[in-house]
Design a protein around this nucleic acid. Structure first.
Lengths: 241, 241
DNA sequence: CGACGTCATTGATTTCGGTCAAACCGAACG
DNA sequence: CGTTCGGTTTGACCGAAATCAATGACGTCG
């Protein structure tokens, strides 16, 4: 299975944008060289699928750039998005036989891909890497459990408000550091309405209706389909949890 | 904070019921001795709280016996159960500052408790243990993500059928190994109707109604409040996902 | 035994979000 | 410039689950 369209392997690691934030952060130069030897950079276009649900788990990866979604299909064909991954996040299922979810690039993206068997061996031989991976997995589990509360106990408006606040918080610090311009934010939404629905366990119509409602209530502005301004982050957060 | 009512420390590990299934499984005699030295057995009565949401994360534990729930409170006072832990499962938040959920014993239980700082240090020094913990955490993350689909995309009947099947599968092999009596099972439900509602993101009335419906449809029997017989595991599973 | 408290069931009603259908809007293209 | 097309919004209606309320079943303790 070597049909992955992969770029030639230079030593990317040293210049890697996520060198100090990804699981490789604690590795020394030598270890990094070894890791570099088994990994390959791969570019993905928006909409391109990296892993298919149920496939043999042949690869794992670090996200270098862009946003990807993890999702699964329900029996009746609808989709539930299980999580979003951002730069420096790890994805895939090490030490497992099959990939329990599909992975698709939401924006153009760049990932650092490893054959799972190679990665598993490397991880077992390098406890510092495994430790980083453990910390990340524990943090991801916490985040996932918080999302369960959203799915299980919130109504549509609360879900939407919570999602918008969280998106703003994850996206704004990356763009600009004017965090104390006050309570306002403006950003480009990474997800379409349908994708937002799939993240929140709603339908596209319900998402659309409540976006309009939040706008009419003066909490947000919608200058364009993908554009969002938040008039008061605090007020919006209050509509959530 | 040493007011934990703890039993004196004999070397429990060798005789431990979950010795070969918990994260300690890969440790040798010496390591086990060291781990034993920092851990203590603790008995819990049904309903007793082991950890409170938001507390400093001072302890982690292995479940030796019984069932416990992880749960969180919503702003409006309702509860969402984030997960159930069974014998050999690990609980608590290693490498973290605060406990992101409350832990309460559902049945009488026995756990093997460690001060978090002691455990963290031991784990860092024993990669085999950390590896086990990583595998467990990854598996738990997979399970949690599957639960997101239940919460986000299933209707009440599907949720209930899925829950009953999963409970049967987790509980039956422990009790008796007559797994090929065919497709029937009978068991004592670990959760009250209210707790089932909290796991499934429903209300107690909806749970009750759909339990009755599944009974009337001939899929299950309800000889008592906490008693359940499954007439066909396969048929019940079909009502789920 | 009878009274009480807890938990579960059942019924009546409301409400929120889903479904179906139509209109709308902006970008890409001939 | 008009057409087309995908994504989005809006409306009308419906149904599943929540809510409100009453009743029932069971255990326990005086």
């Amino acid at each position: 299975m070597d049909s992955l369209e992969i770029e030639p392997s230079l030593n990317f690691c040293q210049a890697c944008a996520v060198r100090n934030r990804a699981i490789c952060a604690d590795l020394d130069e030598d270890e990094l060289g070894l890791l570099n030897a088994i990994g390959r950079r791969k570019r993905l276009q928006a909409g391109e699928q990296l892993l298919w649900e149920g496939d043999d788990a042949i690869i794992v990866a670090n996200v270098v750039e862009g946003v990807l979604k993890l999702s699964t299909q329900t029996a009746d064909g609808r989709e539930q998005i299980l999580g979003m991954v951002y730069p420096s996040d790890f994805l895939g299922r090490p030490f497992g036989e099959t990939t329990p979810y599909g992975v698709e690039a939401i924006t153009d993206a760049q990932v650092c891909v490893f054959r799972r068997t190679d990665f598993d061996r490397f991880a077992r031989e390098h406890p510092r890497l495994e430790h980083k991976l453990l910390e990340r997995t524990l943090a991801e589990l916490d985040r996932t459990r918080r999302w369960m509360v959203l799915l299980g106990r919130m109504n549509a408006e609360q879900k939407l408000a919570t999602y918008l606040v969280e998106t703003a918080e994850r996206l704004i610090p990356a763009n600009c550091k004017e965090s104390e311009l006050g309570d306002e934010r403006s950003l480009t939404l990474p997800l379409s309405r349908q994708q937002m629905a799939d993240v929140l366990g709603l339908t596209i119509e319900t998402v659309s209706r409540h976006m309009t409602k939040l706008k009419n209530d003066g909490l947000i502005g919608l200058p364009g389909r993908r554009e969002l301004t938040i008039n008061s982050l605090k007020a919006l957060a209050e509509r959530g949890g």
